[in-house]
Amino acid sequence: MSTITAPLATEEANGISAPPAHDMAAVMIGGVKIYGMGETEVRALDGVDAGFRQGHFTAIMGPSGSGKSTLLHAMAGLDTLDRGSVFIGDVELGTLNDRKLTTLRRDKLGFIFQAFNLVPTLSARENILLPLSIAGRRPEFDWFDHVVATVGLGDRLDHRPSELSGGQQQRVAAARALVSRPEIIFADEPSGNLDSTSGAELLDFMRRAVNEMGRTIVMVTHDPVAAGYADRVVFLADGVVVDELSDPTPDSVLDRMKVLGGPS
């Protein structure tokens, strides 16, 4: 499996857990996630194979209930699969206990959430540095300054989240995701709560993080404009990968969504 194209014959992929190719930052093989039991059973993921290449910006799209958030959570080790496996680099998450999983999240993953998710009692600076101080690591000040300058927060660093606008808060969250130099950043509707200008600024910043800093980003979104910033779009429906689009533009995404059954 040197490259992964969707859709795949998912049934055959089930149970396969060979290490992925080396240019993959993260891979899911045969991912199944079931909520509820019997009549109320929901297959949030129904055999998903997906790979996320290093130094690429991938968007995951799909209608509500398609399983895109579950996919993200499982990729990030926040949720566990019922079947199948997830690799971050060549480490399979299913083999890790909570302590090792925590360490992996701390050292290799970054997050940007829809609801900003800053610690309200800490200043912007402290929020950005939070992953480093959790890990007990010394911040690299050049890198910190560079990240802060890139997101444009210079004069707001000593403010509390409540004193910042939504766009500023999300830029703090983005800076936080970058500061520990994670191998891969997961973003869940990062521009979902922002006005279009702030959203554009944030997405532009994320694009630059990939281009200029060589980061890997996986982003869930339902916004074709946001997806237009990505290198590739993976489409989900009913828990399976149904399509994929390289070098998307908002228009091409929208077209593809129409084919797949309307906007999310």
Binding site: L78, T102, T103, R106, V119, L130, P131, I134
Partner: peptide
């Protein structure tokens, strides 16, 4: 809960 979960998501161990 939310704040503590965030700390956990960012890599804080249970002990922390």
């Amino acid at each position: 809960t939310r704040e503590l979960a965030l700390l956990r998501a960012l890599g804080a161990g249970r002990g922390q």
